[in-house]
């Protein structure tokens, strides 16, 4: 009997900005390739309940900044459920601007403040100008583990402690203009600026997160996916790496 992976896809219609439904498709595709039975459970509206008990990964894609407040308020309705989920080591992933859900607070350009869940200690400030570029970074936990993505930057994130970063920039803007950090991480709760969709472009990272989810539920890692399965993505990585090199030379 196959192991099961239950993914809760929070608010697919509300957090639907940069083709990030592809991230969920990637988890389904890679999970199946790893020999798992993958169930994706959509939570479409605020009135629909979130089943924390039967989730192995909770996923929030990039959405408009105005949606952050409603998302935070709805998750908070469940009391400590999200915090307990994170403490158990299960992955919670927030993409792009939705990273504001995971941090302490975001200050909008009109001065208003959006409170976050405070899972990762950071603040964000809405930028005057939007910035879009490629994004290349390595994970802080493994400097040889590189990810390629793009980023559309509407808010600057500043981590209270740089050690809480998900990764270190190789090329791009990452969290802000200053400190070479990218994203944030607490246990397996992650926010990242990486779009692409990032889990389509970097399936090796998808595989890693799935194994973290299995570990958190007390199971052994799944069989590794053959490297040849990722040949398109590896070629894409190399092609974009060359493209970035041309920009920086």
């Amino acid at each position: 009997m196959n192991k099961t992976l239950n993914i809760t896809w929070l608010y697919p219609d509300l957090l639907n900005l940069h083709g990030d439904r592809g991230n969920i498709m990637a988890f389904e595709r890679i999970g199946k390739k790893m020999g798992l039975d993958v169930n994706v459970n959509r939570v479409d509206t605020f009135s629909q309940p979130i089943d924390f008990e039967n989730s192995d990964i909770i996923f929030m894609n990039a959405g408009e900044l105005k949606s952050v407040k409603s998302v935070v308020e709805n998750i908070k309705k469940y009391g400590n459920a999200i915090y307990d989920f994170i403490e158990s080591g299960k992955p919670v992933i927030a993409i792009g601007t939705t990273g504001a859900v995971m941090i302490d607070k975001t200050i909008r350009s009109d001065g208003s403040v959006i409170e976050g869940l405070g899972v990762i200690h950071a603040e964000a400030t809405e930028r005057k100008a939007i910035y879009g570029d490629d994004l290349h970074f390595c994970l802080n936990e493994d400097k040889d583990f590189e990810l390629m993505a793009v980023q559309i930057h509407l808010i600057d994130f500043t981590l209270k402690d740089k050690k809480d970063a998900l990764g270190t920039l190789i090329y791009g803007k990452g969290n802000n203009d200053n400190d070479m950090t990218e994203g944030g991480k607490y246990k397996n709760a992650i926010f990242t600026n990486a779009l692409g969709p990032v889990f389509v472009k970097n399936p090796w990272y998808t595989e890693k997160i799935i194994n973290e989810a299995l570990k958190a539920k007390g199971e052994t890692p799944a069989e590794p996916v053959e490297e040849s399965f990722y040949s398109l993505e590896r070629n894409s990585f190399k092609a974009i790496h060359s493209f970035i090199k041309q920009k920086t030379e």
Partner: peptide, 18 residues
Amino acid sequence: EELKDFEPYYTNTFYAFD
């Protein structure tokens, strides 16, 4: 193709997933 209207040029294709 790559986006080259103004700098920085970049390689966005995520809209294809929309």
